[in-house]
């Protein structure tokens, strides 16, 4: 059944008594939350969210699978992924080198849209399920090929406790401890 417009009207409540009732309702609701706040704050450095495997975090290259097609660089909307030319010994002509293209990524620009991962014809790119990594300077965020081929360090994991949020009917979200080793 399709949509339909329905005329609604504001609840009409007027008068001194209704005002009084409104005040009481508001204050008692406040007191209710003062007693049981139902909060789900993440105490961040001490706890961190263990993200689902489908999360679009940092992108890493599996060099073995890469076929140097530059699809990822072509689709990157932020011009973060670029191809570099590296000389490499040519297997067919020993003693000679040939130029090969490899993707590198600049995390100053990356917007984590995941287009490159989705477009890669051999699944050579993959997301790691974390994204909170701090760099001391901007130059470090411009990765070279070697950095790009292994997952970045994740210091938060060594300092904090992994937690997960699950949707709950009563409290909105509930923070639970994530099982170790669970992916």
């Amino acid at each position: 059944m399709p949509a339909r417009p329905v005329a609604k009207a504001l609840p009409k409540r007027r008068g001194l008594f209704e005002g009084f009732k409104g005040n009481i309702a508001a204050i008692s609701l406040g007191v209710k939350y003062l007693i049981d706040p139902k909060r789900f704050t993440l105490i961040y450095p001490n706890e961190y969210i263990k993200l689902d495997p489908g999360y679009r975090g940092f992108i890493v290259l599996e060099k073995k699978k890469c076929i140097n097609c530059s699809s990822c660089a072509r689709i990157c909307p932020a011009a973060a992924m670029k191809m570099i030319k590296l000389p490499e010994p040519d297997p067919r002509h020993p003693g000679k080198t040939k130029i090969k293209l490899w993707p590198v990524i600049n995390y100053q620009r990356c917007i984590f849209c995941g287009y490159c991962v989705d477009v890669c014809p051999t699944e050579a790119l993959y997301h790691v399920p974390y994204h909170d990594i701090v760099y001391e300077n901007l130059a470090e965020m411009d990765w070279d090929l070697e950095t790009f081929t292994k997952p970045p360090d994740y210091p938060t994991a060594s300092e904090g406790m992994p937690v997960k949020y699950i949707v709950d009917e009563e409290r909105g979200l509930v923070k639970v401890k994530a099982q170790e080793g669970e992916q």
Binding site: M1, P2, A3, R4, P5, V6, A7, K8, A9, L10
Partner: peptide, 26 residues
């Protein structure tokens, strides 16, 4: 004003699901 693009020019799944467009006069 009874105007909602989902109702007046339905796109995606909006012509199949059942929902209301609330309209107030105040």
């Amino acid at each position: 004003i009874k105007y909602d693009a989902r109702y007046n020019d339905p796109y995606d799944a909006y012509d199949e699901v059942d929902f209301e467009i609330p309209v107030f006069e105040e």
